[in-house]
Design a protein around this nucleic acid. Structure first.
Length: 719
DNA sequence: GTAGGGTTAG
């Protein structure tokens, strides 16, 4: 009513004494109606509508216009009210008015039809938009350059390209296809509908392209995961003399984020600062996400901290940045900060946090978030169910993952749901079950994608199902072109099985030069099977491709050490030193109630370290009595045998398991997560411990799960 | 004479 007050004052201009009416609005309306000519009345209501900022007020104006029949006399006012209803998210009231005009007033003009179509389209009411479009045709009203953009828009956002094509035909027939707005909408629709060529063709043939068209095309490439093309187009646009605005920058920043190109990220950031775009929340959000994807959380935080106003997307961008960069604990802290700030977590926030729990391997935290999601009554869509399944599987609780999967109606499950479960079975070593699921999925008519094949090949690899894996790979090549990651899975599978030559032959047959993951798989296999010659070939390729990746130096030096080639070990260590590379510290965590306890190799940081060390020593004696012989090859240092055994005893995973034996109730499984691969000697020791103490020990290492029980491991010593 | 297009987290 504040704005009305100012209008009130303005229009009165002292012509009448203010009435002693409890409702100034009605007195004002009645005065307007009786004191002015129809034209000026329309102007006044038009101004009133323009200043109207709430649904209740709008309904008041609407009802006055209805009772005075003005609504039937002024198509302009009718349209304004329809626009306002749409703005306030009430398309049904808009439609009721439209129908009223259609019956009681003059037949609606094409302007009014467009207004109504726009109301539906902007509110995301796809069906109603298209239905009204067809009713419009039947009513003999011809669509125009204001109609088509909205029709294409709903077709684009609802993947109704066929319907869009029909409307495109209408545009061609009526000659509106060469309107700049219509063309931009067409580019957008075809590009979003995976019909790049059609979109690009229209774009290329446009006689005049404005910034919006360029941006639509750039955005389309970015959304289709073609960031390189998006940036090439962006460059071309600049060469044509067009200056990027904030919308363009949002898409360009996303494209750079996808590429992880830190250098270009910096220059876009500067551009956004220079043009004051960073003050817009959309731009700041996309710049945060861009830096995060480039691995620069400091810059992402800087932008976030400088924002005057943040929305849930700002928080989610930073949260997801932390998770993507392996800083899950920071994400947990930020989540609390988000809630303290009064920003309510939404389903995307939940998705990110569930992924953070999966990364940490903490089923305790994961459950807490699951409860939080259920308590908050937020809508759990299929993406979130899939993330929850993935989290449970990665936290070692495959049973709950399967339970969730079974609870989802078969028609609701998407390809990702199946992929999550297949890879869950795979990482727990249940290759046969993964294969069964793979068949079941296809029987139920769900088409496998490239991720399904990665999951199934990796499941075969972990379970040593070489023949089945080979068959899947062959079948796969019939429907999809194998990508680098599929070759990496195959090399991994063949290599682990000791078929090193076959793995190497496959590499040589690859249509494109192998990347680091392919050579890395071969190097790992060479380490497992002690093949120095092939190992050297793999390592040399890796040192070229990824000269700063510590893991490959460590693997190769392990191969040398296992053969007592201490000179080569020393040389590699020197190389690492010269490059300033450090071997990542082994780290294991174990959950104890709601506490998380971490252990480094031979550290004294844990408050219980003395008890834990004593337990490790007594465990060693008990195991030796049962026949355990330490696997000294795992202590890859050039030291005396006795010292080697000492080093082995204090590996982080052994400390964590000893802690578990000491603290965790005997009926419960001991769950340990390690950042690197579990060592051979620890693996052997846990088999003994599981037998002597009758305990279930579940270890998640960098690669997969190991379930130790009754003296054996679910990986059947194959990992 | 009244109206319109391209945008960020997963």
């Amino acid at each position: 009513m504040q704005r009305l007050g100012s209008l009130h004052h303005h229009f009165f201009l002292g012509s009448r004494k203010p009435l002693l009416n409890p409702c100034p609005f009605y007195s004002f309306i009645s005065i307007c109606t009786f004191s002015y000519s129809p034209d000026s009345t329309e102007v006044i209501y038009d101004n009133l509508l323009k200043s109207c900022d709430g649904l209740a007020f709008l309904k008041q104006i609407h009802s006055v216009l209805t009772t005075t029949s003005l609504i039937d006399k002024s198509p302009h006012l009718g349209a304004q009210i329809i626009i306002k209803y749409a703005q306030f998210g009430d398309p049904n009231s808009a439609r009721a008015l439209f129908d009223h005009i259609n019956i009681h007033g003059d037949k609606p003009s094409s302007f009014l039809w467009n207004t109504m179509i726009r109301a539906y389209a902007n509110g995301g009411h796809c069906f109603e938009t298209l239905q009204l479009y067809s009713v419009m045709h039947r009513a003999g009203i011809s669509p125009n350059n204001y109609t088509f953009p909205f029709i294409f828009k709903v077709c684009a956002s609802n993947s109704l390209i066929l319907l869009g094509k029909v409307a495109h035909g209408d545009a061609l027939k009526t000659g509106f296809d060469s309107d700049l707005y219509v063309e931009a909408a067409l580019v957008d629709m075809y590009a979003k509908g995976d019909q790049f060529c059609d979109g690009r063709k229209i774009f290329d043939e446009m006689s005049m392209k404005d910034l919006v068209c360029w941006t639509a095309m750039i955005t389309a490439y970015e959304q289709a995961e073609k960031p390189e093309e998006a940036l090439i187009l962006f460059q071309k646009m600049q060469q044509e003399g067009l200056l990027a605005d904030s919308v363009t920058i949002v898409s360009v920043a996303s494209a750079i984020g996808r590429l992880g190109d830190a250098k270009r990220a910096q220059s876009v950031h500067c551009y956004a600062i220079r043009h004051l775009f960073l003050e817009e929340i959309c731009v700041a959000n996309s710049v945060i996400a861009m830096h995060a994807k480039c691995g620069d959380m400091d810059k992402a935080c800087l932008v976030f901290d400088m924002m005057d106003e943040r929305n849930s997307i700002s928080w989610n961008s930073l949260l997801s940045g932390y998770t993507q960069n392996g800083k899950a604990s920071e994400a947990l802290l930020l989540f609390d900060e988000m809630r303290d700030s009064g920003c309510e977590p939404n389903p995307v926030t939940a998705l990110i946090m569930v992924a953070a729990c999966a990364y940490l391997g903490s089923s305790h935290l994961g459950r807490k978030f699951h409860d939080f999601i259920l308590d908050s009554k937020m809508k759990v869509d299929m993406n979130l169910w899939n993330a929850l399944m993935d989290m449970y599987a990665k936290c070692g609780d495959l049973e709950t993952a399967v339970e969730i999967f079974s609870g989802i109606h078969p028609s609701e499950r998407d390809v990702c749901s199946w992929n999550v479960l297949i890879s869950g079975y795979g990482m727990h070593g249940y290759g046969k079950e993964a294969l069964k699921l793979f068949s079941r999925m296809q029987e139920e008519g769900v088409e496998p994608n490239h991720i399904t094949f990665t999951s199934i090949l990796s499941a075969c690899s972990h379970a040593g199902l070489v023949d089945e894996g080979r068959k899947c790979f062959r079948d796969m090549t019939k429907s999809v072109t194998p990508e680098m990651k599929h070759y990496a899975c195959m090399v991994d599978m063949l290599g682990r099985a000791g078929l090193l030559q076959e793995a190497f032959d496959l590499i040589k047959e690859m249509p494109a030069p192998p990347n680091d993951s392919v050579w890395g798989a071969l190097l790992l296999a060479c380490k497992i099977h002690g093949n120095m010659e092939l190992g050297k070939i793999a390592a040399n390729n890796l040192f070229q491709l990824e000269p700063n990746h510590t893991g490959y130096y460590v693997l190769m030096s392990n191969i040398y050490a296992a053969s007592n080639r201490w000179q080569e070990v020393g040389k590699l260590r020197q190389d690492m030193k010269n490059k300033g590379l450090k071997k990542p510290a082994a780290f294991s965590v174990i959950e104890y109630g709601s506490e998380i306890h971490g252990f480094h190799t031979a550290d004294h940081e844990n408050p219980y370290w003395q008890e834990v060390y004593r337990k490790v020593e007594s465990l060693t004696i008990e195991m030796k009595l049962a026949g355990y012989i330490p696997d000294l090859s795992c202590a890859l240092h050039d030291v005396e045998e006795e010292d080697k055994e000492h080093i082995l005893n204090y590996h982080s995973e052994k400390l964590a398991v000893a802690f578990g034996i000491l603290m965790i109730n005997s009926g419960m499984a001991i769950r340990v997560t390690k950042n690197l691969r579990v060592c051979n000697d620890c693996h052997l020791a846990f088999k003994y411990i599981s037998c002597i103490y009758g305990r279930r020990i579940i270890v998640r290492d960098a690669n997969r799960f190991h379930h130790f029980q009754g003296g054996s491991c679910s990986c059947k010593d194959y990992w």
